[in-house]
Simulated scan of single mutants.
Amino acid sequence: MKRFRLAALLAAAAVALLPTTARADTAYPDPRPITGQEIIHDPTVSHLKSGPYVAYSTGGIIGARLSDDGTQWDDAGNAFAEPPSWWYEYNDTGDPWAPDLSYRAGRYWLYYAVSSWGTNHSAIGVATSPSGLPGTWTDQGKVFTSETSDTWNAIDPALIQADGKLWMAFGSYWTGIRMVELDPKTGKAVTGATVHHLATRPDAPYAVEGPYIVKHGRYYYLFASYDACCSGVNSTYKIKVGRSTSVTGPYVDSTGAALLEGGGDLVLEGHGRYVGTGGQSVFQDKGADWLAYHYYDAEDDGTPKLGLNKLSWQKNGWPVVR
Rank of each mutant, 00 (worst) to 15 (best):
A8T: 13
A11Y: 01
A12L: 14
A13P: 02
P19T: 05
A27S: 14
Y28V: 00
P31L: 04
R32Q: 15
P33A: 09
G36P: 00
G36E: 03
H41K: 01
S46V: 11
H47E: 09
L48C: 05
G51V: 11
Y56M: 12
G60M: 00
I61P: 01
I62H: 08
A64G: 04
A64Q: 03
S67D: 04
D68F: 01
Q72H: 15
Q72G: 10
Q72P: 00
W73H: 04
G77L: 06
G77N: 07
N78L: 00
W87F: 15
N91E: 07
G94S: 11
W97R: 04
S102F: 12
R104H: 14
R104M: 11
L110N: 10
V114Q: 02
W117M: 15
H121V: 12
H121L: 13
V126D: 05
P130H: 04
G132E: 08
L133R: 13
G135P: 07
W137S: 05
T138D: 14
T138Y: 02
K142N: 09
S149W: 12
S149A: 14
W152G: 07
W152L: 11
N153K: 09
A154T: 05
I160L: 14
A162H: 08
D163S: 12
G171N: 04
W174D: 03
R178A: 02
R178M: 13
D183E: 09
K185G: 02
G187I: 07
A189R: 04
A193M: 09
A199E: 09
A199W: 06
P202W: 06
Y206N: 14
G210D: 08
K215R: 15
K215F: 06
H216Y: 08
G217L: 05
G217Q: 02
Y221R: 11
L222W: 07
C230P: 00
N234P: 03
N234C: 08
Y237F: 13
Y237K: 10
I239Q: 12
I239S: 02
T245E: 15
T245W: 11
S246P: 01
V247L: 09
G249Q: 02
D253Y: 01
T255K: 14
A257C: 07
L266P: 02
L266M: 12
L268A: 12
G270W: 03
H271S: 15
R273Y: 10
T277M: 13
G279H: 11
V282W: 02
F283Y: 13
F283W: 08
G287P: 01
A288P: 09
W290H: 13
W290T: 00
A292K: 02
A292C: 10
A292S: 15
Y293L: 10
H294K: 12
H294M: 08
D297G: 07
D300C: 00
G302W: 04
G302S: 08
K305M: 07
L306Q: 00
G307L: 03
N309V: 05
K310W: 06
K310C: 06
L311Y: 10
G317T: 06
W318M: 11
P319T: 01
R322G: 14
